[in-house]
């Protein structure tokens, strides 16, 4: 067992840039987070927030160039990964950490059967015979609740439906029983009924196997259902971090609050209910090659003051333990709760 303060995965002040010269895009600007065994950390963000780059950097599959890691550390059970050689990282990938992608169709090779692709890992990493590996592959398909796994193991990716392919990819990721699973928008491309099945499956497998799960997503609904802790990203920074209940009950960052006010909901609760006016965040996310001075959110923030344009607010503890927000006025937001409009025009009509 590791020491108490040693996490399964710890990301510390990670910085990544793309390109060089005047057009340099600062994609990650000091991202810190951690995951423990059996827990789900959701990384929530819109496109361009840096959530996928975070996942790729942790896995060591970031394309460099154009990407460039300019600082920080990624520690897996205390072992620093960014400095490790490729041999060691390759060993860890699959054995200790695995990744699920959004697009299962392009993640599976169309010319090999699904079973063959899962079995490959058993053959090359565990030295199993071809036959034994196929038996294990069928077991894995069964584990991800694919009916008739024994028959379907010989089928090709195009013969699987979208939901099935996603299950097959989960089976492949879990084949070597990794301790950490990173899921990058695992259900975004799927229909809502299938999406619910996949999220349920991931949640169950995590609980059964004690896997640490990093869930990268933009969907506030999915996050609310499965996450233990949530990190909200904006312009390459984590702007808020809290356990799920706290974050939804008392968002401390106006961006988090704006996101929640932007989602039209199916149920009665919340601002997005029938007939209500959505309260969108005005403007657009900043270009990563020209992140605004001070708080990166200030041009879109209804509460921005002079201090916001001058100083970058640090991610600091606000109120509850482990609730951190990067806003100069976070305490006030936390005290007010979420039911106050985030933009003022709604109040004035």
């Amino acid at each position: 067992m590791t020491a108490m303060d040693e996490h399964l995965l710890e990301v510390d002040d990670l910085r990544v840039e793309f390109g060089r010269g005047r057009g340099t895009a600062s994609v990650l600007n000091g991202v810190s987070c951690h995951v423990d065994e059996g827990e789900t950390l959701a990384v929530l963000g819109e496109s361009g927030s840096g959530k996928s780059v975070t996942a790729q950097t942790i896995m060591g599959i970031l394309d460099t160039p154009p990407g460039r890691i300019t600082g920080g550390a990624v520690r897996f059970r205390g072992e620093e990964l960014l400095g490790a050689d490729e041999e060691r990282r390759r060993l860890l990938r699959g054995e200790s950490m695995a990744m699920i992608f959004q697009d299962a169709l392009s993640a599976l090779n169309p010319v090999y059967s699904v079973g063959f692709q899962i079995a490959e890992q058993f053959r090359f990493r565990r030295g199993m015979s071809r036959r034994d590996a196929m038996v294990r592959a069928a077991e894995m398909l069964d584990l991800v609740r694919i009916p008739n796994a024994k028959q379907r193991v010989k089928e090709y990716p195009h013969q699987f439906s979208g939901g099935m392919r996603q299950r097959a990819m989960i089976a492949m990721a879990l084949a070597l029983d990794p301790e950490l699973l990173i899921a990058d928008e695992p259900a975004t491309a799927l229909d809502v009924t299938v999406q619910a099945q996949i999220m349920e499956l991931l949640d169950e497998l995590r609980r059964e196997r004690g896997t640490g799960l990093v869930l990268i997503t933009h969907d506030l609904g999915v996050v609310a259902e499965v996450a233990d802790r949530i990190a909200v990203m904006y312009a390459g920074r984590i702007v808020e971090h809290a356990d799920a209940a706290t974050l939804y009950a008392r968002p401390g960052h106006p961006y988090t609050r704006g996101l929640m006010d932007s989602v039209p909901r199916v149920d009665d609760a919340g601002v997005g209910g029938a007939g209500a006016v959505l309260r969108p965040i005005p403007g657009l996310p900043p270009s990563l090659s020209a992140i605004p001075h001070g708080c990166p959110f200030h041009p879109r923030c209804a509460y921005a003051q002079d201090v916001c344009t001058d100083e970058v607010p640090p991610l600091r503890e606000v109120g509850a333990p482990d609730h951190r927000a990067a806003c100069h006025f976070a305490e006030q937001f936390v005290a007010e709760g979420p039911d106050r409009p985030a933009t003022q025009d709604v109040v004035s009509g």
């Binding site: 939901g163 809502v192 619910a196 259902e225 209940a245 199916v266």
Partner: peptide, 24 residues
Amino acid sequence: ALLSSVPVPDPTVRRARIRLEGDV
């Protein structure tokens, strides 16, 4: 089933989900 499958952005709401098997 469709309505019950949509995740609600509120961790305090736990809805009974009607689970649909398989795909369309």
